[in-house]
Simulated assay, not measured.
Amino acid sequence: MKKINPHTGILVALAVIACWFASLFFLLNWHFNWSNPLVYLMVFVQMHLYTGLFITAHDAMHGTISPNKKANNFIGYLVVFLYAGFFYNRLYAKHHQHHHHVHTEKDPDFAPHGFWKWYFSFMLNYVTIIQLVIMAIAYNLLKIWVDEKNLLLFWVLPSLLSTFQLFYFGTYLPHKGEHDNEYHSTTLQKNHFIAFITCYFFGYHLEHHQKPGMPWWQLYKVKE
């Protein structure tokens, strides 16, 4: 496999951040009409861009954004804070705990329950009181300049929907049930378009566990 340019990861990360910010800036200032179908499409576009922020943070956790540790971690801290006021060091520890103890009682991403119990268990492992306080402060500050309906529809709702996207395609589907491999993971059938729009290729989840040092934008090549 061709060697990856060490600067490409930073460029990809900056592109994701720029797309998220540009879209959000436009949407928060959009004088929209509820009858316009593009309004509802843009909710899902923004959801996908929120998911991109988190996937970028995930790349940082595996050191694949930049070989420069300070640059790699800075982007990791930035994107999880932009995503929902998370703290990177806490997510970093829990994510690596998942990789080291996948599908066991020590795995913070695993719960042997149905979808909803698993989802809420998953969220409670990551959401903190301080994070909720940060988001409440941010919401009330943004209300000073942004119409509240825009704020709810394009800032709050897409980020919440993104948690379902990340959980369903990146955790629940790959890890539910029993598996005959050491990573207790399954994988999406090869379809790069579906793999990208569902969760930035993390439906190829067995491949991710096999090669955690592969950035999201190269993960499809492992499937090849």
Rank of each mutant, 00 (worst) to 15 (best):
L49I: 03
L49T: 01
Y50F: 12
Y50V: 04
T51I: 07
T51G: 11
T51H: 04
G52N: 03
G52L: 03
G52M: 04
L53I: 03
L53C: 02
L53Y: 02
F54L: 11
F54V: 02
I55N: 02
T56R: 00
A57R: 06
D59Y: 06
H62V: 00
G63Y: 08
I65C: 06
S66V: 03
S66H: 01
S66D: 07
P67H: 04
N68I: 08
N68P: 04
N72L: 10
F74D: 02
G76P: 04
L78H: 08
V79D: 00
V79H: 00
L82G: 01
A84Y: 09
A84C: 13
N89I: 12
N89A: 12
N89L: 12
R90C: 07
R90Q: 15
L91C: 02
L91N: 00
L91H: 00
Y92W: 09
Y92C: 03
A93R: 14
H96S: 10
H96M: 13
H96L: 14
H98S: 05
H99C: 03
H100K: 15
H100R: 15
H100M: 14
H100W: 12
H101C: 09
V102H: 07
V102N: 08
E105M: 11
E105P: 07
K106F: 04
D107Q: 05
P108N: 03
D109K: 02
D109Q: 07
F110T: 14
A111H: 15
A111D: 14
P112F: 06
P112W: 06
P112V: 06
K117P: 07
K117Y: 15
K117L: 12
K117Q: 11
W118L: 09
Y119A: 09
S121W: 15
S121I: 08
F122G: 11
F122P: 08
M123N: 10
M123G: 08
N125Q: 13
Y126A: 12
T128S: 12
I129D: 06
I129W: 14
I130E: 15
Q131L: 07
Q131G: 06
L132P: 02
V133A: 06
I134H: 09
I134P: 03
M135D: 08
M135N: 13
A136S: 10
